[in-house]
Each structure stands twice: as C-alpha cells, then as structure tokens.
C-alpha cells in the first residue's frame, strides 16, 4: 500500500534527530544535527565525503554512540531498543565487506535471513534474479558491483519499514546503477517504506527524493521538502552593473556564526507550507558566477518577495528559475552558504 502523501501533518516522524553531537578524539563528526523524516518519504542526505553522513546512519542503528542529543527511530531510541530498531531496518552499509568471505552468495543470503524474522524467501529470489546474482560464487570472488548487489538484496528482502542506504550505487556500473534505482522505486511503491538515502552523487537519485537534508562538516545546511525548495529557492540572473547590488538581507554569514536565516521545516512534505517570515525577506544563498555581463545568484525567498526586492533595487532581472534538487544541494554546499542547523 502506498502511504497517503496527504497524511495529516501530526503523524509522528519515522526518524527524529535533535541536537545530535558526535565527537571523535580528533574531530567533531556531528555538531548539533536536527531533522525529521516523515513516514513513507524518501530523504536524500547529501554532503561531501566526511560530512558525517555515515556516522549519522551508524548512530541511528546504535552501531556508533553519540555524546548528546535525542534520536528516535519510530519512537524508539536505538540505544534502548537496538534489536527492534535493527529488525525494522534495511541497512546498506558503505563498506563492501562480509565477515565470512568463503561463503557462496546463496549462503550469504541464507546467513542474512536468519537475523531477519520477516525475510521473504520468494522476494529474495526475485531480487536475486533481477540483480543477476551469481548464487554459487564465493563472496571473496565477487566484484565490487556484485557485492553491492548482494547487499541490496539482503537489505530489501525482509521488506523493512525503514531503509538506511549509504551510497547504494557505489561500485556499480552505469547499467547497474539504473537497475538499482529502478528497483528501489518499485520497492518503495510496493512497501511504502521510509528511506534515508545518503549520497554525494545527488543528480542520479534526485528523482527519488521527497526531501533533502544537506550536511556539511557535521552541520545541517538545509532540511526541507523538495516541494518547499521549489517554491522558495530561486536562481536569478541579472545584468551586472558597475556597482554590484547589496544582496537582500546582507551577505551570508560565515557558517555557524550567524543567526539562522531559515528554520528547518518540521512538517511532512505534503503539507502546504506557509511561507516562513524569512521567505518574505529574501536572503542570498550563493553567488554562482559573474561572466559576460551576467550575474547569477541563488536566493531563498518566495518568488514574489524576490521580484519585489529586484524591482526595489532597480535590478535588470534577466531570468528567475527554480532549482533542481541537485542544484539546490550544490547551492547549500557553497563555501559561504548559511548554516541552518544552528549549532548553539
């Protein structure tokens, strides 16, 4: 059954993170991460390597500890409820390792099935066929792509309500990537599962996303539904003058030092978002470039507010366009984009 995207906004989130902090001896992996994932949605967790994505997934499964903050997976704290949380999750780890490399693929799947009470052997068979798994080959003889495909089968075959996917297409060739993305879309349609999909290759997965969370250096840059971003994030192109205009709301403050220009949106993606105060006053997210007499900026704010600001400023506006999710991620990853994760 498909989840109803018009579900009431008070449905409890599938994942809830509040001020999560994780410090390693020499580095802060997560510094006050907060966001929610509504049930039945697909959230792309994007960020460069080392942003803290893998650490975050491991904390959700209690494979890594946290120093402080609140974490809830379907209303359970994974520290107190490790077993049910793991049973409810299809986890695709970043590593392509398996503890018993001598086992054959069918034995690997059999091994995995023992830890998953809801394992569906028929579905596992369908997935194995779809992904062309070499059932009699030993793990140690498998290519990277083959290992990935075995792991994907193991993560989906028990139809878990939650999928935590760490770079799912890593190691796959272009055809394999397409097949896996298509399989994921079908799986989501059939199971209505909630997914947190970590990647630094956003473009290939953007069609799957309901929501985006952009993580950089352990901080949330933006956590928002794709629909809201379509309505509140725009690229403007204008004729550059001799004196550059003052950006609306001043220049973006360096990450982590300024006030939060926009709060994270805690309501599910389908709810009609009321424009936040900050969306009526546009703010500059990124200066994309200035070439051949044209300047391109990415602004956060309603279209009406941005057009109003441009008129007031006397800007010669050439175009105003929405951004694709992949472009939105890039804008928020720019060196001076404001952080909204509000580290306190």
């Amino acid at each position: 059954m498909l989840p109803d995207p018009t579900r009431p906004p008070d449905t409890p989130p599938a994942l809830h993170l509040e001020d999560v902090v994780k410090r390693y001896p020499s580095v802060v992996a997560l510094s006050g991460v907060s966001f929610e994932v509504p049930p039945g949605s697909v959230t792309l967790l994007a960020g460069p390597n080392g942003a803290g994505k893998t650490t975050l997934l491991r904390i959700l499964l209690d494979l890594a500890s946290r120093q402080s903050g609140r974490v809830q997976v379907f209303d359970l704290d994974p520290v107190d409820a490790q077993v049910p949380v793991r049973a409810a999750t299809g986890f695709l780890p970043e590593e392509l390792d398996f503890p018993f490399p001598m086992l054959r693929v069918r034995e690997v799947l059999d091994f995995q099935s023992r830890f998953r009470p809801t394992w569906d052997p028929e579905y596992a068979e369908t997935l194995a066929t779809e992904l062309e798994l070499p059932r009699n080959q030993r793990w140690r003889e498998l290519s990277k792509g083959q290992r990935r495909r075995v792991q994907i089968t193991a993560a989906l075959a028990h139809r878990p309500p939650l999928l935590l996917l760490d770079e799912p297409t890593d190691g796959l060739d272009p055809v394999g990537r397409e097949r896996v993305l298509s399989l994921l879309a079908t799986h989501l349609a059939e199971t209505g599962a909630t997914a947190l999909y970590c990647t630094h290759v956003v473009a290939e997965a953007q069609g799957l996303a309901d929501r985006l969370v952009v993580l950089k250096r352990g901080q949330v840059r933006v956590a928002e539904s794709v629909d809201t971003l379509r309505r509140t994030l725009f690229r403007i192109e204008f004729r550059g003058g001799e004196a550059p205009p003052t950006p609306p709301g001043g220049d973006p403050t360096p990450a982590g030092t300024g006030p939060s220009p926009a709060a994270t949106d805690p309501t599910p993606s389908a709810a009609e978002p009321t424009l936040q105060r900050t969306d009526r006053t546009p703010s500059l997210i990124r200066r994309e470039g200035s070439q051949m007499g044209s300047e391109r900026w990415v602004l956060r704010g309603s279209e009406e507010a941005i057009r109003g600001w441009a008129t007031d400023t006397g800007l010669d506006l050439l175009s105003l366009d929405t951004l694709t999710p992949a472009e939105a991620v890039l804008a928020y990853l720019s060196p001076n984009a404001p952080a909204t994760g509000d580290p306190r």
Binding site: L2, P3, P5, S41, L181, S182, A185, T186, L188, L208
Partner: peptide, 18 residues
C-alpha cells in the same frame, strides 16, 4: 500503475501518485 511508472522513470512513487 504507480509501481510500473515509478520503476521505469526511477522516481518516487509519491510523485506519480501526486
């Protein structure tokens, strides 16, 4: 079907439903 179209286009089934 939602499932078929989402799979073929590799997009979120909620988008097809919408």
């Amino acid at each position: 079907s939602v499932r078929e179209l989402a799979g073929a286009l590799r997009i979120n089934p909620n988008t097809v439903l919408q």
